[in-house]
Every structure is written in structure tokens, then in C-alpha cells.
Amino acid sequence: MELDHIIPPPVSFYFQVEFVGPLDIKDMAFMEVSGLTMELETQEIDMGGGHKRVVPVRQKHGNFICKRPLHEVFMSDLSSWVDSVMHQGVNTAIVPCDLIVKLLDAAGNPQCAWYIKGAYPVKWDIAGFDSKKNEVALETIEFAYDTNRRIM
């Protein structure tokens, strides 16, 4: 095996999140993202004679969660969309957006990417304030979505 052809695995701290869709949201700089999960639910079927078989039932996934420093005094495009969805709630149709999450190499080239379809905010949270700590105020935005799939 030649050692000069070994490609190191990508690092998880260099990533990018982009909106693809009807809203013009450019402020997608996050400190942390999570929730790119997929799970296949199964059901156990009794086949008789003590034999059981496990079969797939449906795919499910968690919510996509993004953390970032609390935005400045004026609300950003993303903050405005989240605020609008949270205040209108179920009384108004929610405009979903698609997201692309890219894991980048040191030169900024995508190494892996995931397409998240039909995302919309379902939870907004701000980390607690503590006068004894010298930490950046963080907000967390959680998105429900229809599907995610790896595209590269």
C-alpha cells in the first residue's frame, strides 16, 4: 500500500449551510449543526412455529438543529423568517425551504453534501444568560423537514 495516496477523512468543523428555495436568506453561518439522521423503523412479524421476521416499515429522521451566535440588534433574514413562522403558527401557510449542508476540506472544496427538502423552523431557543460566565450568547434554531439525502 502506498502511503502517498491515502486521503485523510474530512474534518467536521469546516462546513457550510445554504438555502435553496423561495426565500432569499444569506445569513447561514452556524457554529454547529446536527440532526442529519435517518432511521428505518421496523416491525416484527410472527411467522409461526417460533420464527419471527423483522421487516422495514417506514423511514424517519430527527429535526435539523443549527446553533449560532445571537444576531445583532437588527434581525437577519433568517431571524425574521423564524420569527414570522413562530408568530403565525398554524394559522398561516408556512413557506418551507430546502437546505444544502456541505462538509468542506481545508481549501473550501465540498467533500460531502446533504440535501434537506422542505425545511421550516419549529423551535427557537436562546441559551441561558449567566453573569458569572464570559460566553457568547447562542441561539438554536430547529427545523422539521420532509427528507434528507446525501448528494455527494
Rank of each mutant, 00 (worst) to 15 (best):
P56H: 11
A137G: 11
F19T: 05
D4W: 14
H61W: 08
T37A: 03
K132V: 12
K67H: 07
F15V: 02
K132Y: 07
T147S: 15
K26L: 14
K60F: 03
N63L: 03
M75D: 10
V101K: 00
H61V: 05
V57R: 14
V55S: 09
V85P: 05
P96L: 04
R53K: 09
S84R: 05
I141N: 15
C112V: 10
C66Q: 09
Y115F: 07
Y14L: 12
K132P: 01
Q111G: 07
V95S: 14
E72G: 14
P8G: 07
G21H: 12
S131E: 02
E135Y: 03
V54A: 07
F19I: 14
E72W: 02
N148W: 09
C66I: 13
G48F: 10
C66A: 11
P121K: 04
D46Y: 03
C66M: 15
V101A: 12
C66P: 01
L23R: 14
W81K: 02
E39N: 06
A137N: 09
S84H: 11
Y145R: 00
P8K: 13
K26E: 13
P69T: 00
D24S: 07
T147R: 11
S34C: 12
M38E: 06
C112W: 10
L99D: 00
L36S: 07
V101F: 09
I116L: 11
P56V: 01
E18M: 04
E32C: 00
V17L: 14
G48T: 11
W124N: 11
P56R: 04
V20F: 05
I7L: 09
A144Q: 10
P8L: 05
E39I: 00
D130P: 02
I116C: 09
S12T: 11
K102H: 04
P10S: 11
D98I: 02
K52T: 09
I25A: 04
V20S: 11
M31E: 08
M152P: 01
C66E: 02
M86V: 08
T37N: 08
E18N: 15
S76K: 02
L104R: 10
E32I: 01
M86W: 05
F129D: 10
G35D: 01
V85R: 02
G50C: 09
V136W: 06
